[in-house]
């Protein structure tokens, strides 16, 4: 607890959140009403029927369980990689002296501007030659590779406030650079690592462009559900179902991981100089 919160805070934030969630409510309502009714907007009350038709159609037509499994595999692996490697890199960039440090950092961080469509065609050729098309690694490798730009930045940014005397004390004690990372920095960087996990999971779970180009049979949820929307019809009820199905999992991840935001704070206490 940070302190004595004035009573108005919870209602204020609550009111804000309720306004914020209006489009999401719309999404849910859209998925539960027939298209002929939502033509005048999902809020229209001229006729009001609730139906699970769209949910049933999506459930029947698409092998959701299998796609769910593929999505989970892709998102979990592509999330774990930066959760492990980004703190290591951030530590190296922030606490160690070596040549090309700044150059490398600039290169890595600037890669964030790179849009996905730039990566697609060169990688497509490479994956074909390596026989990686329709292999989930064809998606995981770029998902991980493209995440370092912001993940390294994010972790390094938190390390800037890291208590230096802890590092120094360890050094005096004869602790090598790797040990300092594993025993001192890593256990205290749970907050940024959790943030990396949440964001990367969400982005890879929702990623569409790379999976639809690189994967064929092993399609993740997003790629499978992207087929729902045709070019010539706008079956928004089913699209809404798809959107809800795909959004729920990252939200769970958010709820689970955000606990570490407070946990990280406890170990760190009493170290500001």
């Amino acid at each position: 607890m940070i302190g004595r919160a004035p009573g108005w805070i919870v209602p204020l934030v609550g009111a804000f959140a309720l306004i914020w969630i209006v489009p999401i409510v719309g999404l849910v309502v859209t998925s539960l009403r027939p298209i002929s009714e939502i033509i005048l907007g999902w809020w229209s009350l001229q006729e009001f029927t609730l139906t699970l038709d769209a949910w049933i159609v999506v459930w029947d037509k698409y092998p959701l369980a299998y796609a769910f499994w593929i999505s989970t595999k892709i998102a979990v692996i592509s999330t774990i990689i930066p959760m492990l490697l980004a703190p290591a890199a951030a530590y190296a960039f922030h606490f160690l002296k070596f040549r090309f440090r700044r150059l490398l950092l600039i290169l890595i961080i600037n890669a964030f501007v790179l849009p996905n469509q730039v990566v697609i065609i060169p990688l497509f050729r490479l994956w074909r030659e390596l026989g990686l098309i329709d292999n989930i690694w064809s998606v995981i490798i770029p998902f991980a590779g493209l995440s370092f730009a912001w993940a390294v930045f994010l972790v390094k940014n938190y390390l800037e406030d890291f208590p230096n005397e802890l590092i120094e004390a360890a050094q005096v004690d004869g602790c090598g650079p790797l040990a300092r990372f594993f025993y001192i920095v890593l256990p205290n960087a749970l907050t940024p690592i959790a943030a990396v996990g949440i964001l990367q999971f969400m982005w890879t779970w929702n990623g569409l462009l790379l999976p639809v180009v690189f994967l064929r049979d092993e399609l993740p949820l997003t790629a499978l559900l992207a087929r729902i929307q045709g070019v010539y019809d706008r079956n928004w009820d089913q699209v809404a179902v798809a959107a809800i199905i795909t959004t729920i999992v990252p939200l769970m991840i958010f709820i689970v991981f955000q606990r570490y935001f407070t946990a990280g704070a406890q170990t760190k206490s009493g170290s500001k100089e």
């Binding site: 190296a92 890595i108 650079p177 990372f181």
Partner: peptide
């Protein structure tokens, strides 16, 4: 324990740079 900063840095960075090289530098 004996690793220098440079050695440690490259040890920590190499796996990342492999991913990075394939999916960013090459494209």
């Amino acid at each position: 324990r004996q690793l220098s900063d440079t050695q440690a840095a490259w040890l920590l960075l190499t796996p990342l740079l492999l991913f990075f090289g394939v999916s960013v530098i090459y494209p």
